[in-house]
Nucleic acid binder design. Structure first.
Lengths: 184, 184
DNA sequence: TGTACATCAGTGAACGCGCGTTCACTGATGTAC
DNA sequence: TGTACATCAGTGAACGCGCGTTCACTGATGTAC
């Protein structure tokens, strides 16, 4: 049946939202198109009315999550305190346990590394995130800001990846706290 | 047909070697048992003579790669220079490009984070690696060695994950160099 | 030493299953007259 | 305003495919006599 034209864009957004969440929770290969469509309240058939392939959806989800991350950082006060608060939140047990709405790099970078067709999307996200992180917050010296931002991001992503890979909660928190102490 | 008994252990080792390489290159879900057996020079049928399931093989591969990593670190001179050399090698473009024989954390941690049954194996590896890294090399203060080791490992894993996720070679090298400069 | 038989790792066809993708069909909506 | 028709997103069965896993069978080796 024909549906009100205005619904289409909203459904498209719902698929993107749900897929971006599910992919971060379970990985690209851990989520079927059927599951993603079901989460968006649709059957699997009309998927191809919205995206041309699963890879197309994957790339769109990276861009979608990227935009959310950048907006999230922008909303933090651009001060030393704001930077510490941003880093503490990134390295919190909450972020460690809730992958669906969290860092797209920590969740999907390893899988993207193996799929050349996804690298352009992740490259764009990385460039934007580094630039924003370096320019939005204060760093020790302005001409070293970019380098320091890269070093901090590496520590943050690595700590989150390590903390999520163990089922020893004490070890997980030890890792998060060690790196939080180093960066704040 | 019946085969010489002594071959069995050698075939088992060959499956493990090849699977540990392939899993790190393409991820657990990116490698079928057939491919792993073929790489070991066998057909897929006798897989269950060696392992009880794919998950069993996955856990064995984590332990196998872990033992290699620890032996590799042990072979490095336990001095300040040795530590710098170890870190530089970890953050080299060579390690960035050759995933099959590289760090099992950077390659598989994200996938393990989503599969509770694999977490015990990775936890054991993490514990052993942190302990060895903290005790084998000299750190600024002995009582902070473990914390500093965790901070350094987080930076290293994060940098490798970021560097591998982009197809911009300049950005990739910039990340590796920034973190190498920080840690050596 | 020679012969008959039991062993059991390897073989490869087969299984059920879920995947990404396709497509003939449906039917409420928007449009033409 | 009322009627007839074209539109097209959604439906859900179906496709080919590769996966993890199973299993009846093979046949060179080791063993018993």
């Amino acid at each position: 049946m024909r549906y009100p034209a205005s619904d289409t864009a909203e459904k498209h957004a719902r698929i993107l939202d749900q897929a971006a969440r599910l992919f971060r929770e379970r990985g690209f290969s851990g989520v079927s198109l059927g599951e993603a469509m079901k989460a968006a309240g649709l059957t699997h058939g009309p998927f191809y009315n919205h995206f041309s392939s699963k890879q197309d959806l994957m790339a769109a989800c990276i861009a979608h999550a990227s935009a959310q991350s950048l907006a999230d950082m922008t909303s933090v006060e651009p001060s030393v305190a704001g930077k510490s608060s941003y880093i503490s939140r990134y390295l919190s047990p909450a972020h460690c346990n809730i992958r669906g709405s969290g860092c797209v790099i920590a969740a999907l970078a390893a899988e993207i590394a193996r799929d050349p067709s996804m690298k352009p999307s992740m490259t764009q996200h990385l460039r934007a995130l580094i630039e924003k992180f370096a320019s939005h917050f204060p760093w020790r010296a302005k001409r070293d800001a970019r380098r320091e931002a890269i070093q901090a991001l590496s520590s943050m992503v690595g700590a989150l990846v390590l903390a999520r890979a163990t089922d020893d909660e004490a070890l997980s928190e030890e890792i998060l706290e060690a790196v939080t102490a180093q960066l704040t």
